[in-house]
Amino acid sequence: MLVLSRRPGEHIAIGENVVVRVLSVKGDTIQLGIEAPRHIAVHRGEIRAQIIAAMEAARASAADPAAMKRLLESRRKDS
């Protein structure tokens, strides 16, 4: 892993089109500004991890032949 030290106002260039700028540092919070082409998705890491975990849980649950029956039973009880 490349490790760089930056001060507020300084930036890091990634390739030709991505710039990560340090906007401010307050306590243990660093505010970053990210400039990237529209086709590059930029998300908080924990949100992406949450979606991947939910996708894996959905995939694992779909492999259980009885799970869909349980869903339909939940719906029947709720209606």
């Binding site: 979606i51 996708m55 939940s74």
Partner: peptide, 19 residues
């Protein structure tokens, strides 16, 4: 939205609106 089907027990199905 993706659905997490219920495992055995009383846990209800879940819908993931984040992705």
């Amino acid at each position: 939205a993706t659905v997490i089907l219920p495992a055995a027990g009383d846990r209800p199905p879940q819908l993931n609106l984040r992705g």
